[in-house]
Design a protein around this nucleic acid. Sequence first.
DNA 1: ACCTCCCGCCATGCT
DNA 2: AGCATGGCGGGAGGT
Length: 866
Amino acid sequence: MENEKENLFSEPHKRGQMKTPLKESTAANIVLTEIQPDFGPLTTPTKPKETSQGEPWTPTANLKMLISAVSPEIRNRDQKRGLFDNRNGLPEPKDCLHEHLSGDEYEKSQPSRKEKSLGLLCHKFLARYPNYPNPAVNNDICLDEVAEELNVERRRIYDIVNVLESLHMVSRLAKNRYTWHGRHNLNKTLGTLKSVGEENKYAEQIMMIKKREYEQEFDFSKSYSIEDHIIKANADQNGHPDMCFVELPGVEFRAASVNSRKDKSLRVMSQKFVMLFLVSTPQIVSLEIAAKILIGEDHVEDLDKSKFKTKIRRLYDIANVLSSLDLIKKVHVTEERGRKPAFKWTGPEISPNPSGLSPVIPFSPSDLEVRQPSKENCAKNLFSTHGKPNFTRHPSLIKLVKSIESDRRKINSAPSSPVKTNKAESSQSSAPFPSKMAQLAAICKMQLEEQSSEPRKKAKLQLARSGHCKPMAPLDSPVNAELELTAPALLQPLGVVPLIPNPLSSAVPMILPQAPSGPSYAIYLQPAQAQTMTPPQGLSPTVCPTPYSKATRSEDYPDATTEKAANDAEKPSTSTRPGNLLPVPERQGTQNRDREPAAERGSKRASIVEDSGSKKKLKEDLKGHENVPTTLFPSGYLIPLTQCSSLGAESILHSKENSGTLSPNHRIYSSPIAGVIPVTSSELTAVNFPSFHVTPLKLMVSPTSVAAVPVGNSSAISSSHPVPVQNPSSAIVNFTLQHLGLISPSVQVSASPGSGTVPMSPRIEAVSIIPENAGSQQGRATRYDSPVLGQNQLNGQSIAVTGAQQPVPVTPKGSQLVAESFFRTPGGPMKSMGSSCMDFDGANKTSVGSLFVPQRKLEVSTEDVH
DNA sequence: ACCTCCCGCCATGCT
DNA sequence: AGCATGGCGGGAGGT
């Protein structure tokens, strides 16, 4: 089984090396690297055998293995087998494997289904490219080659690429060719998506749905009428299935939609799905809810179960890719009824682009160029639509679109750059090692991360940001603010909203300059939408402070704690690991990321969940909506104007991400056990604030605030820091000890109970009642993806990089430094987690009256996946 | 029995 | 017509 997986993958791809970008690796890698030096990376040669290769022999390989282990899938396999190394690998490894394998394994040899999973495949895919590729280098991706190397059908590659494209991590160049952008634009993209999500009022929709569910369950009466309507309305509009594809700035995403085809589906679905996470307070989205909202449309509730099922299938596909990117992780929400599959956002926190922002960003001429294309695309998207219902289109627009498209095609076709490829890879592979190993590795990573993070956060944030940011600095601020505030923020999409309003009859593109954080972008609205744009209001979710662990938890407990720790560890660890494994140079950074996901998977965590949703209710929900014209639609495309800025921003973002991620996690994870307080910060944060309040806050945040606050990182920091910082590794330690048997699971070393929050900025405080929360929610992700070196360095020092980053190769040194920092002590405080209950319901007061939902407790069980 | 989700048919659309 | 894309859902692997 498992074994092969690698083989399957085999591909070792090329090792990475190749060309590609190497650059990057740097940072992220750094960590890994340090840890494991070696390796090389690279490659190994051969691919063929590979299988995952190879790693067996070298230490690095081992590391890789570990990394892979992190991911659940990988682990499983690995564990199972372990075996072999694989090497065999060839591309078609399976066969080979079988042969090679020995007997036992043989079985495995066949790749079990898991081995063939999209998530694994995605990991392999990601392993080939650096997280932060050097723009200067050619980062072309030839789909055929990739498919071949990975031994998968092309169809699968499309699934991955489509999702990546939705995040602007890749853009289509031409037929069979994509350009790898890595995470450079990720933050920006997420910010834009968040803004759009706010505009769409997804948060509200989610709340509505939940409410309904509750009500139904309880029978509360069904009060849903109003609410439902609202929801419906939102759904209709927002939810439009068709929403448009949101385009980012710069980068050449124009091509993205190249085909015109349907840009809908997977791509759009992926964006919407991400929006849900960004907008929801708990940041946990159940598949059910996501499906309902995505379907939205209408209707349909009843109609199709099949439709619902299909949607779910697709969501799993998307979720697998997002998980590989470490943006989300699977969890289960426990409700009264039972557990529901859900995913928790583990990516960076983001602030909506629109909002703040930094001033700056240079827009270069390029921007202009970009715009148009984007516009075109947008138009296409809007119009295109095939069957779906989408919007109306104007003939004139259509014509324009067509012309544009044609142009585009021409352009697209042209390109072609050589392929690229780098592959680094390996990572995934899997070597056989026990899951424990993986965990340990993960743990180590976590520790490192934590440590690093802390310092880095502090220093880095300030320093770095300022440094990096220069260009983008402003951005941070918004971000931070949001992060901290998160919940509230979500509610109110400040910037965005305003933008929207345009009454265009048909879709008219509007360009909004937004300086700040995000690049400005143009939104194309459909006529319908145009009508009302109400600013989103926040919904305020009500939070339940209660932590609860439920009885059920007993089980969970142990696990949870451990898991949490593990998780925490994992993330970091993962990140680190990857680096190790991977061929370093190039991808290190990327690797980290990649790996991370795996880790995530593996890890389980307990989180708080909120959803409760009733399953079937969905339908009902759907039914209801209709009214609410007021809502905005997502349908428009957003086109960021700033290209340049993006880069800078990106860098910044990265840093943010890193910092941010870390902390949140911690909290979450914090030991449940100890914690009696399970309440998660997030939950707290969840608390509703009137939207009003929020808004102001956000406003406050603005640049200035930004400056004051450590931006991105800061956000993370604030939230996370408190706890994590103190004892970053406590969790790890505990975890480790427990494993070792030194201590009972129940015991933990905790440092700070949940509360350790540190309020960041005043505003934040104001906003969130509980400081913690904010952080928790936001935080999370831990990874060091740092794009560039600078980022990598947690320390922040390095910072300067930003601008240069991309182009410039990272320096290894930096990484080292970083690593060092990581190593520091573990310490550890624990984090308390708690499970909390949240209700989204509360939200939207504005729209709805008080929707107050009974709290539910949701527990999240983290299970891994599979 | 349910949750996941792989697999690949086949529609869609560009060349 | 041929090929690239990708929607879609049957049905099987895993728990």
